[in-house]
């Protein structure tokens, strides 16, 4: 096997393994930019994976399945929003509860589905682009959900940093009191971000039955919702960096598998640790550097419930 072929295999696997992480990370970015921490990703991904599977099994329609997954994820996130925004509850506690609740819920209703299978999405090559050496087939000969993720990365980036909406969202995450004084509804903006963010996380869950594992087993995300929680921070709440972060984690898995097949004498444990190690290193370096420059990347009001006026 030639080097370009090996690289193509690694990159292709990196993209397929990274895509569910990417969707979930984007959802986390949107929610946290508005100031609401979302730790419930694992639970939301599992429930939306289950809904995708059930709707696909019943109707055979991938589009309906995806809509169902997004609605379920949006509803669960709405619950998180209600606790965190309306009741001003603790965001961490609510998120953790949601993660556990979702895991349990998917297990409970998933039991009846064990043994059934659905078809997975076909790869659709994009004419022209797929012919680019190495990268073409990895990035442009994928299923349509991967292409959807590219569109979402660009769309979310543009929305957050180049539109008035984005400015409002980021402001609510940085200085809700100022926004409130300017007449913006902090609660409304946060609610919308949590719900739409949840829908994006739901796409990450849907990717499992759609592409990765077209059968139902309990716990099929195997903890990837928690990796996405870390990736949101790793990406410094930026959609573009989320893309690289997600693919980096995907690539670590792909490389680990390929290295073993090729007989490279690299212990697989080291490769497994690598992305986490990198997360810690990058966070440390960037945080230290920015603290010197007096900058922070974390939305200033992240995790803080908003109390209006003089009520607090």
């Amino acid at each position: 096997m030639t080097t370009p072929e090996i690289l193509t295999i690694i990159l292709t696997t990196a993209v397929t393994m990274g895509t569910p992480l990417l969707f979930a990370t984007l959802g986390g970015v949107l929610s946290e930019r508005a100031g609401v921490i979302h730790l419930g990703m694992e639970g939301i991904m599992l429930v939306s994976a289950l809904v995708t599977f059930v709707v696909d099994l019943q109707t055979g329609s991938k589009v309906l399945a995806l809509i169902g997954a997004m609605m379920a994820a949006g509803a669960l996130s709405g619950l998180h929003g209600f606790v965190c925004i309306s009741l001003r509850g603790n965001q961490i506690a609510s998120g953790l509860a949601l993660a556990l609740f979702g895991t349990g819920l998917s297990g409970l209703f998933g039991d009846a589905l064990i043994g059934s299978t659905v078809t997975s999405l076909d790869r659709i090559p994009i004419p022209g682009l797929e012919l680019i050496p190495i990268l073409g087939s990895a990035f442009f000969n994928q299923d349509w959900m991967v292409y959807l993720s590219y569109v979402l990365v660009a769309g979310l980036w543009f929305m957050l940093f180049h539109t008035n909406w984005g400015l409002q969202i980021r402001s609510v995450g940085e200085a809700p009191i100022v926004c409130d004084a300017l007449g913006l509804s902090v609660a409304k903006i946060r609610f919308l971000c949590v719900i739409f963010g949840g829908m994006l996380i739901g796409l990450g869950g849907a990717y499992f039955p759609m592409v990765l594992t077209s059968f139902w087993v309990d716990d099929l995300t195997a903890g990837r919702g928690w990796i996405a929680v870390a990736l949101v921070i790793f990406a410094f709440w930026h959609p573009g960096k989320a893309l690289w972060g997600a693919y980096l984690f995907g690539a670590a898995i792909a490389f680990q598998l390929q290295a073993q097949v090729m007989g490279l004498k690299i212990p697989s444990y080291i490769l497994e640790m690598f992305p986490y190690l990198l997360t810690i290193v990058v966070l440390t370096v960037v945080t230290v550097r920015n603290r010197r420059a007096g900058q922070t990347f974390m939305p200033a009001a992240l995790g803080l419930p908003f109390f209006r006026g003089d009520k607090h």
């Binding site: 393994m17 716990d219 995300t221 990837r224 898995i253 792909a254």
Partner: peptide, 9 residues
């Protein structure tokens, strides 16, 4: 137990 990774492997 990690279905996605087992599939990739």
């Amino acid at each position: 137990f990690d279905p996605a990774k087992e599939g990739a492997a």
